[in-house]
Design a protein around this nucleic acid. Structure first.
Length: 487
RNA sequence: GGCGCGUUCGUCUAGUGGCUUAGGACGCUGCCCUCUCAAGGCGGAGAUCACGGGUUCGAAUCCCGUACGCGCUACCA
């Protein structure tokens, strides 16, 4: 076992979308597998018919694919341990449940929902420490069971927990954890609709799929003793467990939809880069060496270890994600950003405009360090794609003076004479004009910025002018003189 | 209620008995740079390491208790 390459799995329930907490679980599994030259398996846990959501699995797989966590085995990528969708393995669970019954470790239970409910009420009245099934159906004789089955009375199969002793196991993250067997309920293994519960299916599949490490959320820690018991009753070797801390809302409760976005696709749609999401999620509960915080996926693989996973839950804090997004944008090549920007433009009001790659690359480079999202190119500097229609009132008040039109006319006259409109020439000419007019360069710079962009903030003026080009710059300044004079 | 897990700046975290007057990052903030805004550089505020007992020459670090938070307690995962 120890010499074998690890096989880990991400086993989500397809309830509609990939949850960020799920992504974190998937990521840590993925990193552990890649780091140790193992296999990362995707298994769909769709054993609850009531929660069936059309297209949920496809959506989940698509999101995993988008973010770059490719699995080695799973739906559509079959290994030797399929099928990887639990609803297609029903006969397997049935067979093993029967095996457990034969061994006396599980039994048929014909109790009605009413009896169970009454039992709970009774136990509560008696102030019993916790409500548990009373093994009522364990007393049934073979004949009674046979008769009930023939009559097709609805039934479940329960785990026959031996209430004596303790279950002890070592968790990579939490060290030794102990549970008293008297606190473990006779868990339902097969539901009355014939489907297995999570507990049964997960143990059987992990065994059959030769999973070596079960890396999952902390919400499973409390039911791990049931799983341990199952491994023992089957006589199977147990995997190594690692229970990850939970992701939290700002108020420290378990991350939920009510307090913000929880679907990975929401963040994708808001414009977060997959690199930033991965990096951010990795840092929620894990940290690398030497205070390093910027990580690409391959670097995470190199550095990751389960031993360094934090024990306490982590609040999902959007500020840091924003910062990482801008960092990852800065880290990208202009060509890569070009691809992303084009996609963004298709969804904007500039979709029908046709800008050359050459032009766009220049815009990309000049704005790169000022943006947090790709869409900021459009929202923060629309003037690269359209003439300004309005001019920021506060900037007019601050920078536009009565003699400004006169100054600008002079500047235009000088710019018209220029042959090569590069930023050096633009700067020299503007400075010379200011000198001619006996004014500070600021008296020209700010009005020109306002005239060509409509706003008071942005990259260096000469760079903006160079990108826009001579004719456009002159046209825009003239237009501004007209419009701002009127106002 | 029971059982389990957890608790270091607002947030993410480093820290595994002395190197710690608790380090870094995000955010906030001051200055520099500067045509503006960013970026960048240099600073600042911000944590009695949940609380109370022990163990020890010495504890954020080990032990016990308490509090608080969270998870589980389903024929949901």
């Amino acid at each position: 076992m120890l010499s074998e390459k690890p096989r880990v799995r991400f086993a989500p329930s397809p309830t509609g979308y990939l949850h960020v907490g799920g992504l974190r679980t998937a990521l840590y599994n993925y990193l552990y597998a890649k780091k140790n030259d193992g296999k990362f398996i995707l298994r769909i846990e769709d054993t609850d018919k009531n929660r069936y959501v059309e297209g949920a699995m496809e959506n989940l797989i698509e999101t995993l694919k988008w973010i770059g966590l490719d699995y080695n085995e799973g739906p559509f990528i079959n290994g030797n341990f399929g099928p990887y969708i639990q609803s297609q393995r029903l006969n397997i669970y049935r067979k093993y449940a029967d095996e457990l019954i034969e061994k006396g470790k599980a039994y048929h239970c014909f109790c009605t929902a009413e009896r169970l409910e009454n039992l709970r009420v009774e136990q509560k009245k008696l102030k019993l420490p916790q409500a548990m099934y009373d093994k009522h159906c364990l007393k049934l004789t073979q004949d009674e069971i046979k008769e009930n089955l023939e009559k097709q009375i609805p039934h479940v199969i329960r785990l026959n927990v031996d209430k004596k002793g303790k279950v002890v196991f070592d968790d990579i993250i939490r060290d030794r954890v102990e549970f008293d067997c008297s606190t473990i309920d006779d868990q339902v293994l097969i539901k009355s609709d014939g489907y297995p519960t999570y507990h049964l299916a997960n143990v059987i599949d992990d065994h059959l799929m030769k999973i070596t490490h079960v890396i999952r959320g902390e919400e499973w820690l409390s039911s791990t003793p049931k799983h341990i018991l199952l491994y023992d009753y089957f006589g199977w070797e147990k995997p190594i467990f690692a229970h990850l801390p939970l992701l939290l809302n700002p108020d420290k409760s378990k991350l939920s939809k009510r307090q913000g976005d929880v679907a990975v696709e929401d963040y994708r749609d808001k414009g977060y880069l997959k690199e930033a999401i991965i990096n951010f999620i990795a840092l929620l509960g894990w940290s690398g060496k030497d205070n390093k915080e910027f990580f690409m996926l391959d670097e995470l693989i190199k550095e990751f270890s389960l031993e360094k996973v934090h024990k306490a839950g982590a609040v999902f804090n959007i500020e840091k994600l924003n910062w990482l997004n801008s960092e990852h944008i800065k880290n990208k090549s202009s060509e890569d950003i070009l691809t992303l920007l084009k996609k963004e433009m298709i969804n904007s009001k500039f979709k029908s405009e046709n800008y050359s790659d050459f032009y766009l690359i220049k815009v990309i480079e000049i704005m790169k360090e000022r943006i947090t999202f790709i869409k900021d190119y459009i929202t923060l500097s629309p003037y690269f794609f359209e003439k300004p229609e309005d001019y920021d009132k506060s900037v007019i008040d601050k920078r536009w003076e009565s003699d400004t039109p006169e100054h600008l006319h002079k500047l235009i006259a000088n710019y018209v004479k220029l042959e090569h409109l590069n930023k050096e020439q633009l700067e020299i000419t503007l400075k010379n004009t200011a000198e001619e007019l006996e004014i500070g360069t600021g008296k020209l710079i700010h009005p020109v910025r306002l005239a060509v962009s409509g706003i008071g903030v942005g990259p260096g003026l000469y760079e903006i002018l160079e990108i826009l080009g001579k004719d456009e710059v002159i046209t825009r300044i003239k237009k501004a003189i007209e419009k701002i004079k009127q106002s």
